[in-house]
Amino acid sequence: MIMSRRQKVLVIDDSQQMHPLIQVRLRGLGVELISAYDGQTGLKIATEEPPDLILLDVNMPGMSGFEVCQVLKESSQTHDIPVIFLTGADESVNKVKGFDLGAVDYVTKPFDPAELCARVRAALNTKALMDLLTTQGQIDGLTGLHNRRYFDERLGQELAAGHRYERPVGLLMIDLDHFKSINDTFGHPKGDQVLRKFADVLTQTCRATDVTCRYGGEEFAVILPASTLELSHQCGVRVLDAIRKCPDFVDIIGRPVTASIGVACAVPSDRMTPAVLVEAADKALYAAKVAGRDRIAAAELAHSQTVV
């Protein structure tokens, strides 16, 4: 387990006898168990001291487990707490409904001890990893690329290294063409799929040493350490080509997708900040957009040495 903190599991079940049973069965996991015997109380506890996992009985008098789950998923405070439904073995319809409501798993009652343990452990591990990602915050949740924060930090490091070893640093700023209309026409879930696919193509097209990031919205950035403007430009052309030809976009929204790229490159001076290079690449990106999109434009960096 990667957690140093003891993880908390909230059990919401009206049947008193389930609680000590679950307690004993999960003893080996070293988790702290909290008990609630009805939905309302469970929701209150979940909001006041959010657990790492909720084991939720489906069939309860008063507020049902489904209703509890719905409320949990609607609130930003409790939205990310994973839910495992406890359901009767003969209630197979409930399993599907539970997943639709956002549960991560289900366990049928009466449960097999080993199975309960394994499912709870898996859910808690995932939760711990998610927590780690949120606190360390280097990964973009949607695409799996590096996020903006990491980009800013890394570009600073690469510029410092470039200055020290007198080698060029290339930067691509990439923007999906007409992305707003994709969202408006096909809805945000499809838009998200397009962004994820875009990220995949980007990762596959760039070299292992390139740093691929989601800059924000539909804008992506690639840092190319030790790359001349020419090499960076070539990389950009490859990306445009791969995006244009990727058949998966047709599967998702029924038509291909294109992008525009601004490329900038510099052997950094000791004063050069990430903002300078980003701004230069952004201007070039704007030029590529104005010139008709689906193309790459190069920046001219007046006050630092450009390398071609």
């Binding site: 009206d14 049947s15 006898q17 049973l21 009985d57 069939n59 008098p61 009767g88 009652k109 009466p110």
Partner: peptide, 14 residues
């Protein structure tokens, strides 16, 4: 129904 439901869930577990 309620008592039976609870026994159903707990019995096998014990």
């Amino acid at each position: 129904s309620q008592v039976a439901h609870q026994l159903k869930g707990a019995g096998g577990g014990y």
